[in-house]
Design a protein around this nucleic acid. Structure first.
Lengths: 263, 263
DNA sequence: CGATGAGTTGAGATCAGTCAAGTATAGTGG
DNA sequence: CCACTATACTTGACTGATCTCAACTCATCG
């Protein structure tokens, strides 16, 4: 089954027609090299992009020239669905690793959105993404540098696990310290020092290519990480799925902190 | 026409059945006093709330006890639509002023989401909200205290204008300096000093009840405010609406800064 | 007319930023 | 295989933005 279908099936029960349409949608896959800006603010591309493989990020540049990363995009994520309501992109997208990206023509997006269960699924996916944004706002506004980065690492591991991309407590993470600085609203120098702190405490190992969380329970505790915001009901017809999912993915935690990160 | 219908009609063409269903949805309106937490993290209410009148905010409390405000809710906004995909709320909602709030039973939300054009409209509205969250992330991560608050004030005025709640460059804004601190990730003391700066420069006047932007062009310029992220195509069938809207609401700006704020 | 909550002010502490130099590390061409 | 380059990372010294603490003022209100 294709990645898009699998994603949307988390949120709605799809029919054969729906699946066929989605298969059609992600037919055209392109390769993009690492570190390429492939969607730039102000563009109005006639197709929408869907990550099939690889790692990308969404970012904005302020009028003062600072870059703020807004999200990390993993396989199964749309890059520029906001084009469904905007004339032109209001931010940019860059690959972080080599990627395979499907181009979905806008008309095809319209067709998808015109189908009841797919529209419902897209809506649910958008609500799920909101949860990530909320948590990033908390990271930036209410957590210090150390907790901010610690929380980010927890989130990235859990997301990659959910996408089947992690091995135990290890996952790929092709980020420079400059990238982390642009996520966390810090200077690269300070990121460096915070990372050294986290390493010295035996919480993580990270070398710009892969991340390993050495002490998941303590890292979650340090950062106040609670993975519930990443859980999502499989679809509207099974209300109690989030609890079941939490039980399956990681065993229940001791406290509020380490839910789903400790496995 | 009711507020919910008006909102969703911005994103999709609705039929009579759709409108009837929406009329039904917002039938039951309750009053809530100012400064009341009416949705608390962990609750799983059986209805969803829609602001008919008044001013509210969405917030989270971190494990260290800091409050981070995630969004301001104006008439026409849903408070807890994330319940459509979550078992329980992962954040709280508090009123800031006296409010009138419609309670929409969950089943009614399901009925709405089952209709093609309404599902599509809800999806579009969620995408529109994403734009606000992106800009808040930029505020917190990439702008200093002064620009952060300046940008926030621009956003709030433009949103209230769009909701028909502003008078010229003035709008209600029932926020304490503590509230602003919890939005901008600052201490109340520092908010106080920044506000004094903005007042001294003749950019704003603000007394905790209403906000007046005295020099919209300069305030937009200071903060890098560009209202395009608040613009949204009226619906999918009229691609070039955002440009038209910008032209209508405020005259074109001199630079990138003051779009739509200068009127 | 005290009590309360919000706003204001000052002084010192702290977290994070800047600048600048130095050290890997990987890739490239000779 | 060895310069040579480019990029990321590391480190130290200093600066600056913002925080904390504490006192004080100012409205509002029962």
């Amino acid at each position: 089954m294709n990645l898009l279908t699998r994603k949307l099936e988390r949120y709605a029960i799809l029919g054969a027609d729906d699946r066929n349409l989605l298969d059609e949608a992600v037919k055209s896959v392109h390769r993009i090299r690492a570190r390429t800006d492939f969607i730039v603010e102000g563009q109005s591309p006639d197709s929408v992009h869907f990550i099939v493989e690889g790692f990308a990020c969404r970012y904005k540049i302020t009028s003062e020239g600072r870059r703020q990363i807004l999200a990390f995009l993993l396989p199964g994520d749309f890059c520029d669905l906001r084009l469904a309501i905007l004339c032109e992109m209001d931010h940019s997208i860059a690959t972080l690793s080599d990627c395979r990206v499907a181009r979905v023509p806008r008309e095809c997006v319209d067709e998808i959105a015109a189908r009841p269960s797919l529209a419902r699924a897209l809506w649910s996916a958008a609500l799920a993404d909101q949860g990530l944004l909320f948590e990033w706002i908390v990271n930036l506004g209410a957590r210090d540098a150390r907790r901010n980065l610690a929380h980010l690492f927890c989130e990235l591991l859990v997301r990659q696990r959910a996408a089947g991309l992690a091995h135990g407590d290890t996952c790929q993470l092709p980020l420079t310290q400059q990238d982390l600085a642009d996520v966390a609203g810090l200077s690269p120098v300070h990121v460096n020092r915070v990372l050294q702190g986290l390493r010295a405490e035996g919480l993580i190992s990270f070398d710009g290519k892969s991340l390993r969380i050495l002490d998941p329970a303590r890292l979650a505790d340090v950062s106040g990480f609670d993975s519930r915001y990443l859980d999502v009901r499989r679809h509207r017809y099974r209300i109690d799925d989030a609890a079941a999912l939490a039980r399956r993915v990681g065993k229940a935690s001791d406290g509020a902190g380490a839910r789903q990160l400790v496995g």
